[in-house]
Amino acid sequence: MTPSNVLAEQKLLRQRIDAAHAEAAQPLSREEVGDIVREVLTTMQGDLSAQDLGLYKELESLARYIQHARREIAAIRPADIRDCHLPTAHDELDAVVGATETATFAIFDACDAIGVIAGGIDGEQGVKLTEQITRIFEACNFQDITGQRITKVVKALKHIEAKVDALVAAFGESALGALEADPEPAGDAALLHGPQLPGNAINQDEIDRLLASFD
């Protein structure tokens, strides 16, 4: 055999091994598991004992359990959790941090303006005013603490995202997506979106224009 023939044969063999690996990686359906069990039992025809039948029952219930678990996991729609719910949660939490930061800076600016006024007030009143400004600054510690807590929640969400990703990969995206999607809310329930992220909503001027357009 020439070296090129050997290489060609090795390549062919590699392709067959890859194909066999790919086939082996596919999850088995309940029917396939049942077929395998039946085939095993067929080879034992004539030798079936009560112990064999017990084993058969165990295998069948195991197949049923796997199929049930698969349906349960599919019902929670892990791909939706990964693709929709978790990214939305990240965005909402980022918006919370952004909004509290903006509000905190507005408070600081107001405090600075009051501080300038306090500086112009002689005596005890000016001092008392400055003390209260300091109390406001101290209270604004909350923004940093809130931000750090939210960062912890985001990290936890990322961990969940990785686990869901692994689940989707293990069961196969197409198999899990085969179930019907949850029905979209209808009627008044469909109008309840809560606060919108910046850029997702229209502002007051646009609302005014929209209302005016009905006149």
Binding site: E101, F108, C111, T130, F137, N141, Q143
Partner: peptide, 17 residues
Amino acid sequence: VDDYKTMLRIVRNLLKQ
């Protein structure tokens, strides 16, 4: 040193006080 601008401003203000 802080990665939160609000904290930088709080500490700066309190130091000033």
